[in-house]
Amino acid sequence: MHTNKTVVITGTSKGIGQMLAGHFLTQGMTVYGCSRGEATITHAAYHHEQVDLRDEMQVMRWVRSIRKSSEGIDILICNAADTSANMLTAHTSAAKLNEILSINFGGTYLVCREVSKLMLLKKYGRIITFSSMSVSLHEEGTSAYTASKAAVVEFTKVLAKELAAHHITCNVIAPSVYYTDTVQETLGQEILDHALSRLTIQRALTDADICHTVDYLASPLSAQVTGQVIHLGLVS
């Protein structure tokens, strides 16, 4: 479906980012991924860079290196996120708040800013950012994380307007429960079960659920879809 295209994915060392990188690689695409750690994917068409998305210069260097080694970027998926701030607002330090905001929102902002410049040169692009069901749930203990993910939503909607005339679409996926080691370690089964009970579709997401949604938003066929938030599972 996407053969010969170039996709950039943030946060490919684990979880959804790693799964999506594998998905696109099996379709014959070239994937540029990043994480703070070393690569966890080995594939001839996979190119990894260790990038701290809080660092503007690192992001600029990474995107420039992609520009030099590719013929442009067709698809951007901003998936990287820090989910570690599960604490009440009263216990959240300014440092922790800033860390969460700068990775989850700031990183998304910087990568979108740099990649969209390249997409403008091609007059084509598909940008997909990741929010979370937490924006709809408003659960206690998630204030920093939820605020960061709400910021991603509003940012993406504005970016969609800025880029619409240039055939670049920007959409958000808000996944519900997707089991990863990190999610299960960080949240625990009790919280995940509670989250599942709040969903319209009360089951955890499969890889296919996410891939099919991403495939549609990443496709030329979704040219009229921009500034949208796809709530997988839908919080009731």
Binding site: R64, R67, K117, L118, L120, L121, E162, A165, H166
Partner: peptide, 16 residues
């Protein structure tokens, strides 16, 4: 405003 962004991106690469 978009035109200046694309121009700066292209000039930046050429100058580099």
């Amino acid at each position: 405003s978009i035109g200046i962004i694309t121009l700066l991106s292209d000039v930046e690469e050429k100058v580099s």
